[in-house]
Design a protein around this nucleic acid. Structure first.
Lengths: 241, 241
DNA sequence: GGACATTTGTCCGTATGTATC
DNA sequence: GGATACATACGGACAAATGTC
């Protein structure tokens, strides 16, 4: 029957959880922006009545979600709020089932295609000359870079990012980037693509750009399908093997 | 000039990180399925040459991504690989910027609408009688439940989940569920919706179902727009206030 | 560049709470 | 209920990284 002082707090809920919640509400209540410094571990321990171990475990949970960012020797800061956690989740899922790998990757390709085709009308509506110039640059880089090289990969990411930018929807942009990242990480585990497939993909980017330039939604949608067709073929080929 | 035994390991990378990576590869290499038990903390500590603290922090990182699941007193297991991390990220983002709250929520609504409209053709193609019966059940529950009650909310989630199910795309289903969850968590911070808006939303579900029954893609797409229109109005109203 | 304080990273030992048989 | 196995939580100590003077 020892009613300790502490026995009040951990009522059926884990201390770690209450600590993470209180750190989150601290950030929200103080309107802290990404990059803003948080109190040191020692200060947080005292403020939240938790040991350093518990506090650190809570912080690691928040760091995994990019809600906070920890820098060794420097301090803890509000995170960038990226979708890095989604990328980690999906890449792990993709790598986990190698036999079923095709399924996870095919699902991903379908979603990527859904985004670009579903937004086709709005993309073409809102693209202005400036966007088109940047897209042209990306396509040229795509066409001139060595096939499969880092420069080409970078240009591909830039192209798809630029496409979504005029929508002004941050979530769409970040999801697009996240899906691209997952694809780029998991894809190498498939077989190498043939030069013909690469050329086809590059041509599809050009077709998408020209369709957008001509404000032709149907042509754009068709070009998107043309873009993902070789990707699907490659995945299917690996799945069959 | 002391070349310790340990100086081999922490080469510019944190021990925690190498531990998380090795646990992930352990799961992948052993083809462990969700729910499968992992070695105990003590065993993992010895196997990975890490202290309890480092190991536990690594595990907390993986738990945040639902890659592992920890049960107090029982053990550590492979996680369900849900998108809970995405839900946490997005809800936090939604709650973080109350002034800009409208923006984050509007972006979310746009994505939800994109999914259902972009998949309209395939949804209607693949819906069979069994799916339609289940959807009918959900709509009836929606129509008969008290407005805003738990039963109605549950029926709403079921309806949108059932819609995507025939696609056979797990990623689409889980993303749809995740977005719905985020919406359900953040929405209460907006003002209460009026009975008229609720009735409009319920009617939209009925319209979606009937359009699907009639295999009418255009009517379905219109009904989806009708469904999200009152949601957008409510968000805009809060943003203006 | 060097000395120093600050802050996070890692380790250890111990006690407690929880689940399972 | 008891026993065992396991995760949770605490506190102290030292190492490593960072920033500053």
């Amino acid at each position: 029957m020892r009613t300790e002082i502490k026995s009040v707090r951990p009522e059926r809920t884990l201390l770690r959880q209450t600590v993470t919640d209180r750190i989150k509400t601290y950030i929200i209540d103080n309107r802290l922006a990404p990059g803003a410094p948080l109190p040191t571990e020692a200060e947080l321990c005292e403020a939240l009545n938790a040991s350093r171990s518990s506090l650190r475990e809570a912080i690691k949970t928040l760091a995994a979600l990019d809600i906070v960012e920890v820098r060794h020797g420097s301090g803890t800061f509000v995170g960038r709020l990226s979708l890095s956690a989604l990328v980690e989740s999906l890449t792990f899922r993709g790598l986990l089932s190698p036999d079923d790998d095709c399924r996870a990757l095919l699902d991903l390709v379908e979603v990527r295609q859904l985004f670009e085709q579903g937004m086709a009308t709005r993309i073409i509506e809102r693209l202005d000359e400036e966007h088109l110039v940047e897209l042209e640059l990306a396509v040229v880089q795509l066409e001139r870079s060595p096939s499969g090289g880092a420069a080409q990969v970078q240009a591909d990411r830039t192209f798809h990012r630029l496409l979504m930018q005029p929508l002004g929807n941050q979530l769409v942009s970040q999801l697009t980037g996240a899906f691209w990242d997952v694809h780029a990480i998991v894809a190498p585990y498939l077989g190498m693509s043939s030069p013909e497939e690469d050329a086809e993909a590059v041509a599809a980017h050009r077709a998408m750009l020209e369709a957008a330039r001509g404000r032709d939604v149907d042509a754009f949608t068709a070009a998107v399908a043309q873009h993902y067709a070789p990707v699907r073929r490659r995945i299917a080929a690996t799945a069959g093997a």
